[in-house]
Structures are given as C-alpha cells and as structure tokens.
Design a protein around this nucleic acid. Structure first.
Lengths: 344, 344
DNA sequence: GCGGCTGGTGGAAGCGCTCCCACAAATGTC
DNA sequence: GACATTTGTGGGAGCGCTTCCACCAGCCGC
C-alpha cells in the first residue's frame, strides 16, 4: 500500500515541535519566542536552540487569527495608476512609509484603486481587517474615503487634509496656504507687480489651499488676483495653462505655480515666448522633489518634505494601531520652506 | 426576545452567525460562500441573504490558516529605494502586476529590500509563506536571490533573466541582445560607420545582453567595437559616459544607448557639443517608457513592453501558485520592437 | 424491487497559534 | 513560622475557517 492519506506535514515545523524539542510546553515556547516575559533563562535558551535547529518560523495566519493583528498596513492610492507612478510625490511617500515600517517588522500592502470602480472592493478589503491600518494619499473630493474609513473604524492617517471628514480622521499635511503665501510674497518683495498663478486641480485640498495662499498675499499687497489658470499638476497641463495665462495677460512679471511639474511646463512656454526667467518674469514652483533642480533655469520653489511627512504619517498610524488613543483626530501640519534657486 | 446571552463578538459577524441566520450548517454556509459546489439553490440564496444582511466578510487569517493560501503576492525590489522610484521601469512593472492582480482578489505586498542589509529579513518573510508567491525585479549579480528562492520552493517569477540560477526559476525577459542588435543595424543601414555605445551596469544581465547585441551587429558589419562606455541607466551617468565617449572618439556618427534615460543625458551632451542629431550623429535608446517622447529631438528607441511583461510574469506566477507545474522553469522572452522617432 | 449512483447536508476534526487560568515553587513580609 | 506575593510553568480553550466523512434522500438501470 502506497501513501494512504496525505502525508500532511511536509511543511515547516510547528510550535509544537519546537516545544517538544526544547522540552517545554507549547505555552512556554510561545512565550519564549514572543519577547520572553516570565520565562526562565534555561527554558529560553532551550527554545532558542530548538528554533534554530528546526528552522522554525511562526505561521503568521495562525498568529493573527488569535492576536487580531496582521503586522501589515495598507498604502491606499485612489488614483488611476498612470498618474500615480509618474508623480514623484507618490514615490516619496512610499519611501517614507517604507523607511518607518522596516524599523519594525511590518509589511506594506499597496492598494491601487481606480477612483470609482475599485472603491467597493477596496473598502471591503479594509473592512476585512486584512491590514492593521491604512495610509491614504492623493484623495479627491468625491471619494468619501475619510468618512468610510472613519465608519469602519480602521486606524488610518491621511496624507493631506481630506475635503470632507477631516474632523474625523488624522492627517499630516504641509501648510499649503502659508507656503504659497510666502512664495507670492517673495515675488512681491522682488518687485513683481503683475503676478499670475497656475493653480492645481479644483478637487484637491492642496490645490485649493495653495490658491488661497496666493490670493491672500496678493490681496494684502493690494495686487489684482485675476490671472488664474488651473492645471492638474502634470507638466503638460502646466504648458497649457501657462500659454492661456500669457495670452490673456501678456504683462505678467511673476508666476506662482502650484507644482514643479507644472512649473517646468511653464518654463518651456516662457522660453518659447522669449521671456527671460527671472528677468522678464519670475517663476516659483511647489514641491521640490527633484524636478526643480533640473529645469532651466533651476526652479525656486516651495519645498514640501514629502518623505518626512510620510514618515510622520506612518509613525502616527503605528501609534494608533498600537492603541495609543486611536480615535482622536490628530493633525500634523508642517511648515514648508522656500528654496531659492534661479527662477525667482 | 431581546439578546439573551452575551453579544460576544463586538467584531464582525462570523460564519457561524451567517449559518444560523441562513438556517444551515456552517459547512453549507462555507460551501455557499466559496463558489457554491454541491449547494442547493435554496441554501445558496439563504446564505447570500444572510451574508448581505449581516455584512459578513470572511476572516482572512482563519481562512488562510486552513487553506494555506494568503491570496497575496510579493513584489520584491532588491534596490536602494531612491533609485527604484525614479525609474519608470519600476512604475511600469507595478502597474502590470497590479492590473493582473485586480482581476482576481489578490493583493500586492511591496518588499523593498536594500541590497545587503535586508536580505535575511526579506527571505525570512518569504519563507514564512506570508505570501503565495513573488515577482522579483531588478536583481543584481550578487544577490543570489534566484537560488535562495528556488531553495525555499516559493513560487516566483523573475522580471529579467537572473545572472545565476536562471535554470532554476521562471522568468520573463525581453530579448535584449536582439533588440540592441536591431538598433545597431538600423544605424548601420542609415549609413553610420563609427558607432559607439553607452552600455548599462556590468552587474545586470539586461545590460550585458544589450552590449552583446551591439557587439554582434558591429562585428557582422565589420565595424570596430572599441567605443564602449558604461553607465548605470540613469540620466546623469549617461551624461558622464557620453562626454567620455565623445572625447575619446570625436568622430562618432552613431550612438547606441542602453537606456532612454542615459540617452537623454547623451542628447544633452551632444547639444552642448554642437552636434546635430541625427544629422551629425544618430542616437538610439532603449526602453520607450515615456522619456523617449519628451527629449529633443524625440528619441528613436527599442521598445520594451514593460507593463505587458509584468502582466505576463504575474499570470505565470499565478499559474504556478495555482499549482500548474510549479517547478518547471518556464521562460518567456519577448521580442522588442524598434520605435522610430527623430534621433535616428 | 434492490443495489448503485449522485446531490445535498451537517458533525466534527483540525489548521498553528496565543493567552487565560490554575498551580507549584521560590521569594518576600511581618 | 504563617501568610502574601512573585515567578515560571503547562493544560486547555479557543480564534474562524475549510474540508473530510458519514449520512440520507431521491432516482437510475436492471
């Protein structure tokens, strides 16, 4: 008779085997493996040895079945994937998150959800408690993600203030209004009097706040706020917007652009038009994620410390996952800094 | 009757409750939820209803404890994170993987491992069977990842042929040699006689294969193969390499560059030197992941269908996870295509 | 009619782990 | 010296799920 029923084990050793080899009970072995509280030195070293000789690795499913922890968090990006990947903002975020997670043994689950289509599935996944928490980036006005996540009670931290539900969830944001105000004031101090702006998409808070900052600085200086054009943060949209702006207001001597990518587009248009930057027209961007250094001329911009923000968001999330006051909607708002280069 | 005994869970409903509400056994409920084999229409709809009214979501930990599946796969990137994120190759890969995974309910765990430091931890994670399989990208000669993964028997598919262990694991690759040969032949057909190459890093197979393709085409045409300079696929390295190349061989009338990013750097240097492209010197790149369209002039290049390759790699991986001949080292080699633009 | 199906069902046995609890031994307290 | 506390230990009860198995209809062919 050949193999009757299935030879079931085949797989990795279990805690039972470790316990048997170490000559202790499964409970003691478990304790020894998880931090070793209330374990004698003798038992501890016996277990350690057994673990090593057997090559034991705990089964994560079994563990999380009882601990109700998965030791993984999601990074949720509610954005069509094309756009996401070309954006250095996303890259920086991933980097910051990863940096914090690798300090502990927590894994990163990447959740890319197309705006409408995948929302239900994504939410279901999160409801499952498949992950311990979530970092949400790049959310838009219409996905009512903040509310949904607050409803299911999953620990989460938003990167950037959500449009709605901002009072119910934690978020880390840069002070967009202050940054753009400062940028505008720099141009004004420089002598610019006719300053336009290429603003971001109207359904994102970051864009709205930056526009508000520009408006505020302009109003305070008694300057007109009529030269506004919107883009979607991409270079191409910056080209289009700047072209429109320069056509309507050929007398502009300053340009406040809500992202470096759009500013790069603006610089191209200005070069085409034969305007010298910064002599004829000064330009200031926003982000400083690498692009700004490579434009001609190098871009003066408002630096957003994305990696650092992602790190703080992640640390905040881990605190909440660990149960440190999980419900209170903490807010971290980081002041941006202006980085002077050659364009203004 | 009000709720008598303890409403114990507090958490989400369990399968038991679904079964009770549906008036069937837990076994039947389970069957109904998982595909509904051997379940009567009556039972099926009763369970469906119960699931809906209770808002039941199965506990993934409990499920994978018994199924030994996690319904997630890892994307392993053994690369310092800075470099990864700026590379459109990585973005395309993530996109292709994600596209396939979202067809089924499988999640993507991103494993970013710094070359030396995290290898042990990463391997331990994979050994854990925390994931059902892994896609490995951008591996280098020294991480003996292919062997390690083959040893632990985790289903995996490599993006790009690994240096060693290529006979033990599955991989999806573009025919780098053929692509670069074709690129070189295009320049030769165009009339170039003094063709140099900016090759990639010496510890990656893709770079070595491309260089070999260039060598082969040059040798076949009886042309000298002495004008070689290495970069690391980044734009800056392309600048440096091209500068060195043009200094040593000012007579070059053709340049085969192993990546578009490096080719973009090359174009900048050539512009500085006052060489007209393609009239004085023709340039051809490799990749075609967006950069090539935006250079001046737009780059003729060898298109590598990264997203499609990642998709195929993922499908292949899923097959192996599903147990379709898990050990046989399948190889998929995709022929690249030359995309003509203005630089050659 | 009576074995053999096949379709549908529920009982029950785990999957591998953590942690509560009871208990024994060692240590402390007055 | 009697009692309280601390420390270390193992038994055992689950966590929520899938799946094996036994079982009971019905229905076939003969």
């Amino acid at each position: 008779m050949a193999r009757v029923s299935i030879p079931p084990a085949a797989g990795s050793p279990t805690l039972d085997e470790v316990a048997r080899v170490a000559g202790v009970s499964r409970a003691t072995a478990s304790r020894a493996i998880n931090g070793g509280q209330r374990v004698s030195a003798r038992a501890q070293s016996a277990v350690d040895l057994a673990v090593r000789t057997l090559g034991y690795v705990p089964n994560p499913a079994a563990r999380s079945l009882v601990t109700r922890r998965t030791d993984s968090i999601a990074v949720l990006v509610p954005e069509p994937d094309d756009r996401v990947f070309s954006d250095p903002f996303f890259a920086g975020t991933l980097r910051g998150v990863n940096r914090v997670l690798s300090e502990r043994d927590i894994q990163l689950v990447l959740l890319l959800a197309r705006p409408g289509a995948d929302t239900a599935r994504t939410l279901r996944y999160l409801t499952n408690r498949h992950v311990d928490g979530a970092i949400v980036t790049s959310h838009h006005r219409d996905d009512r993600l903040a509310e949904h996540l607050a409803d299911i009670g999953l620990p989460c931290v938003f990167g950037g203030r959500p449009w709605t539900g901002g009072d119910r969830v934690a978020y880390v944001d840069v002070d967009n209004a202050a940054g753009e105000r400062e940028a505008t004031e720099l141009l004004i101090a420089r002598g610019c009097r006719r300053i336009g702006t290429v603003a971001g998409p109207t359904d994102m808070t970051a864009a709205a706040d930056r526009l508000a900052g520009w408006r505020q600085a302009m109003a305070e200086a008694g300057l007109p706020t009529d030269a506004v054009e919107h883009g979607d943060f991409t270079e191409d949209s910056g080209v289009v917007a700047t072209r429109a702006l320069m056509e309507r207001h050929p007398d502009l001597d300053g340009l406040v652009v809500a992202s470096d990518l759009m500013a790069a587009g603006a610089l191209k248009v200005l070069a085409e038009l034969g305007r010298r930057v910064p002599d004829d027209i000064a330009v200031i961007g926003f982000d400083d994620l690498g692009v700004a250094e490579r434009t001609t001329p190098p871009l003066t911009t408002v630096r957003q410390p994305v990696v650092e923000m992602a790190e703080r968001a992640t640390r905040l999330l881990l605190e909440r996952v660990d149960g440190v006051d999980g419900s209170h909607p903490v807010r971290i708002v980081i002041p941006p800094t202006v980085v002077k280069r050659d364009s203004a």
